[in-house]
Design a protein around this nucleic acid. Sequence first.
DNA 1: GCTGCTTAGTGTAACGTTTTACTACGCAGA
DNA 2: TCTGCGTAGTAAAACGTTACACTAAGCAGC
Lengths: 328, 328
Amino acid sequence: MATVKDIAAAAGVSVATVSNVLNNRPNAGRATRQRVLRIAQELDYRPNRAAQAMRTGRTRAIGLVLPDLTNPFFPELAQAVENTARSQGLLVCLVDSQSRPEGEADGFSLLMQHAVDGIIWCPLGSRVPAQVRNPARPVVLIDRPRAGYAVVHSNYLMGGRLLAEYATRMGHRRVGLLSGPQHIESARQRRDGFVKALPKGSEIAWEVCVGFDGLLTQEARLALKQRRRATLIVAGNDLIAIGAIRCLAEHGVRVPEDVSVTGFDNIRWTDLLTPRLTTIAQPVGAIGARAVELVQERMSGGKIGNQRAVFDVELIERDSVRKLNEAS
Amino acid sequence: MATVKDIAAAAGVSVATVSNVLNNRPNAGRATRQRVLRIAQELDYRPNRAAQAMRTGRTRAIGLVLPDLTNPFFPELAQAVENTARSQGLLVCLVDSQSRPEGEADGFSLLMQHAVDGIIWCPLGSRVPAQVRNPARPVVLIDRPRAGYAVVHSNYLMGGRLLAEYATRMGHRRVGLLSGPQHIESARQRRDGFVKALPKGSEIAWEVCVGFDGLLTQEARLALKQRRRATLIVAGNDLIAIGAIRCLAEHGVRVPEDVSVTGFDNIRWTDLLTPRLTTIAQPVGAIGARAVELVQERMSGGKIGNQRAVFDVELIERDSVRKLNEAS
DNA sequence: GCTGCTTAGTGTAACGTTTTACTACGCAGA
DNA sequence: TCTGCGTAGTAAAACGTTACACTAAGCAGC
């Protein structure tokens, strides 16, 4: 591979000048500049990132630390992050902790060793790995807020509210809640947003919390079996909704004929399912892109406080909620 | 961050000795060795990867180039690859081409700039990006074979055969094929394996090829609507199967009561669907792990020819195939 | 002609490692 | 005592960049 030295030799200038031209600093004449650029192109020059990194301390790589790629919300996010990053010339280094804190810690350690310029992180729990507690590098959280960090996520309260309004409009007055883990703020806000926006006369028939992975607990299965006259089941995310629909089917309960179900996330094939799932769409692409922008701003010195970027969400009406007549 | 120089100073030896100890080369005395190691630990020394990379040309990072993270088969693969890699101290750099050849090319270019030590690649089409045609770095293909490369994938022929045997056992004699793109070998082998293992007296009622992403073409929808007395539809992967089931539902056709459907891949929530999908399970974890091993072998000099690692697959019997009595 | 300023460009140290060639020392064998 | 050899360790170059401190030349103003 060609180096600056090769270019310098071919152009009859010093390596310093080549470097100056390549990083377009002002101190180079018009003619020289063009000559150097042309030769660089001819030799197919690519800067050696390792050398650059050693000299400048920047790698033009960012870390992406996710809890679980088998939850389809995250691959969509990863795709958005990777594509935006690549369009800016940034490489994405992936860590999937498989929901294990040690995995998260190891991943951070590896990322720090490789001196990534910044980290986009969807934190697992409340624990902050030592490797990142003194963050030499900017960290931007994604999807899950935490005090002291910049974060970009959806307006979960709004999502909850939209669902509550829709439920009411469709005539549902008694709902069962299959919420996500309440120690995760994004799960809590979805739930709270829903509950607060529920009008007088509507009520929560029951509530059970389960994991975001859609694997239902005994308690959840029992609640779904009994149902206690709930006409609508509001799930914490799409995976939970899918799990619920299947559990209901096992008891011979049809969706939406016998009971309605809503999800959250609008993962890609919720509209390939039977029935197509009514859910809340998050602008995943925008979220991923914004996270990259934010981390990049911080990489280039901008210490712009710990901002929050919150994105509006949208109700996607499909087939899993039935319209009740007033009498029912 | 502590450097070798710091350790050398603290231990009263030269940096060369520190380096020797750290890479446990023989020329260092017992006492010195232990002192250096102790101090390195105390100072929480981590080698500067950039400096190492510049000197040795190795980065201890590998690239993972995938066509589409929104196809749930790939995140599972990515997870396996990342976890095995991390356990070996390798960082994974992700590229998602979003099924666009330019994306693939850009990704490779970025990976080469960062001088990853090896690349695990699920190629998009038949085009080989120029960046990788002269591979200074070892490349291991995953899931999609191609002449001249090492590859690790499932035994697709076996998968096809298992499906054919199962179909026969369940009394299905007339099947419709909803195959994947036939220019991709893995799709072709699934199909061929199935067709070849079909006994006399069984027949292919019709065949349509669609993309792996589960979005059905007009032609496919028409075939599903007509059905031409096929009692079983064999889909090229789970996404296609899911799409087919929904399309059938739109025409009021129930699965498996009216027609049976099989998938391929056993992506994670095929058993959350209604009906639970009968499909072929690939050992995704093993495939990912083996790919990492293979690329690592090659990284450390082993030029072991272009081997093929082929993994057995397994039939997962669920609820989407009905047993027909002989008469039907 | 001198001063001061701008433009265009250069020489070289430095970043943190690894590695090559070398030294210094002790000791066994003759 | 000399030779040779193994052990323990060192000095310094090298990897490819960037950036600092310079210089050389041209030119305007007086």
